[in-house]
Design a protein around this nucleic acid. Sequence first.
DNA 1: CACAACATTGTACGTTGTAGACCGTACTGT
DNA 2: ACAGTACGGTCTACAACGTACAATGTTGTG
Lengths: 240, 240
Amino acid sequence: MPRPLVDLLWRDSPSAPTGGSRGPRARYSTGDVVARAIALADEGGLAAVTVRALAQSLEMTAMSVYTHVNSRDDLLVLMTDHAHARMTPTPFGRAAWRTRVRRVADDNLALLRAHPWLLDVADPRTALGPGTIAKYDHELRAFDGTSIGDIHRDAALTFVLDFVRSSASRIVTRPATGDFGQLWEESVASLARYVGDDFALAQRVGRAAGEAMGGPHDAERAWEYGLDRVISGLDDATGG
Amino acid sequence: MPRPLVDLLWRDSPSAPTGGSRGPRARYSTGDVVARAIALADEGGLAAVTVRALAQSLEMTAMSVYTHVNSRDDLLVLMTDHAHARMTPTPFGRAAWRTRVRRVADDNLALLRAHPWLLDVADPRTALGPGTIAKYDHELRAFDGTSIGDIHRDAALTFVLDFVRSSASRIVTRPATGDFGQLWEESVASLARYVGDDFALAQRVGRAAGEAMGGPHDAERAWEYGLDRVISGLDDATGG
DNA sequence: CACAACATTGTACGTTGTAGACCGTACTGT
DNA sequence: ACAGTACGGTCTACAACGTACAATGTTGTG
């Protein structure tokens, strides 16, 4: 049985337990396994990260994976922390907090674009990893220079990141992509018959939003709109 | 094979296909199955809604479920629409848009509190259901009287609902509940050894936020804080 | 040299969603 | 009244999943 999750997360730390040198040398390090799992997830989503597929990708048996990782859930945490650690944030420089928050948002959107499967990982234990903690530490500094308190600083960052996550899930999973567009066209006929003249407002707004969504630049427009709301909302919470 | 999803969603509509009267009468209606599935989900989460468990709860075989529902994924859509339809929104009355948005947010939080499994349903086809459309139609009216355009009206509502969803997922899944508190106490010792004196800001803010989270009224405080940001952010987007 | 720690493997279990063939029932057209 | 047919329901079975368990082989340490 491998080391506990916290030790695996901090395996590159100098104070990490080395692990006895007895027995055969492992053909792969934990980092290799995690990197391979990320590669699988990047091209096939989290569903492609099965223990067996990962094992085959590493040319070993399914059970050998458990030499390096305690469980699949632990693996997802390790993958997430690795992605967070590899993230190279845009430097804040001397920018004001509004610009800094924009950079945090943009960086996180880029992260979720590169690794859409991060949207499917909802494990609180990710907060235990060095990559996630470093990311947290950096992003908190977006509010340096404002008069915001510690608790509100955490709340404000959470507010921003939640927005990014929600928006990203709508941006990343393209609505017209795949078979949903096809399904939509099959359904819209019978749907129109059911709705009839009811819900006029919903129909009007839904059609407007739907048509705009077909347009080329709408994803960016919606993103900009929401981000403006976020920053505007934080305006009076940062002491001006 | 049952009728397609759209017809099942609108099964109570007068223009819905009645379905030939041949063959034995079904022991349960589609509504019964959906209601039973919701009951299971309410007490055990989505994971408790297995086809077999649902079947046993209805005293039939697993495969009989597929007489009423095309697939488990379809069932989740039906459950969601049912929950949306059963939602009785707080009337807007003559309240200004700020109050209306608060009511929309509060109502949705209450909905997600009552049915936490809704947080785990991420199927775009829910938008096809009468309950969801009626909900959409009503909530769009929160911005009646403002000078907001159609596209922005949709974006603004999405903005509000996204916030509610993110907050709710943090409120509903209690952090100190279950075995996470136990795991935390096991991990915090070795974690402190790893972190050391690095990430001072993250440690300070994290501790402050963590301690506040232990407090009794923090969930509500964080909720109020975020909702204030949301409304403040929408302020200049509604034309005053 | 014997022992212990370790990586690796094969087999197997329980659980999931659901396809396919089949049976009996109740209505429909002749 | 009788055949045809649409339908609800059941049984069996499959592929895929995560992973527990026992066994085998390999390496360093006493």
